[in-house]
Design a protein around this nucleic acid. Structure first.
Lengths: 128, 128
DNA sequence: CCATGTGTATTAATACAACAATACACATGC
DNA sequence: GCATGTGTATTGTTGTATTAATACACATGG
């Protein structure tokens, strides 16, 4: 697997290691990273994105603690076998729940009608 | 105005002073805080939410720099006169744009169909 | 065996957030 | 005038988060 699977934004307020962990969570849950698949090495990812290897290692370590990844000694990190294939839609939707709740709260503070927000989001998602 | 207008989450990763600034932005843009309205004093807010007065003062100071608030010497802080009434829907929707883009990106990584996400968000917003 | 590839423990540097304790400038109202 | 109410500047301390630099242990493959 190529080091380019991750979309790192070094300028973002969100810490790099957390960006990686969260993308791993979603890519695995969505099935874009298949079970058993070998991930790019920490040095590959670090070199490609010009970040420190330890930052990547930290992300991989957290993902392993969460049970997302498995460590293959001498080989590297792979998607855990437990996570065979794609999770259920309900399970994946749950990963968006908190973010959707935030959107709803902010929309209410902005006194924006729900229909308007939904139309806008629909347009953004459709165009991707 | 009561000190309870702010919904502070001390455990959140987002800094308290920034929570306050962002809520001010939205509440003013949405018209829930009317122009000229007097805000709760820093000591009131700090006491009510059990946080440090200087943290509130910092938030008010930033909001003043942004032109959201006006300082009334000896009285306190008030919503700036410039912000008379509610902003246009387009202007308010723009404040949600970045967050909606994030939702779209995450949904794609999760391989969730747009309709499912929209239905879920609609339910959350409707129930509020 | 040994070069090369894994991941990572350790230490340090830097920055940030929040709190605490003062003290100050200003306006209001008795 | 003076007590009381604003916001704020200042200084210091504490705890934490993030990233970086270095060195190490281990497995693989010839």
């Amino acid at each position: 697997m190529d080091a380019s699977i991750f979309a790192i934004q070094p300028t973002s307020a969100e810490p790099i290691y957390r960006q990686i962990v969260e993308q791993l969570r979603r890519l695995i849950a969505g099935g874009q990273l298949a079970s058993g698949e070998l991930l790019p090495s920490v040095r590959d990812v670090a070199g490609f994105h010009a970040i420190n290897p330890m930052t990547v290692s930290r992300a991989y370590g957290i993902a392993e603690t969460e049970g997302l990844l498995e460590r293959l000694r001498g080989k590297g990190m792979a998607v855990a076998a437990m996570h065979r294939g794609t999770q259920s839609q309900a399970h994946r939707l749950a990963l968006l729940e908190a973010q959707l709740a935030d959107v709803a709260r902010h929309a209410q503070e902005l006194e924006l009608p729900a229909e308007l927000v939904l139309r806008r989001l629909s347009k953004i998602m459709g165009g991707s």
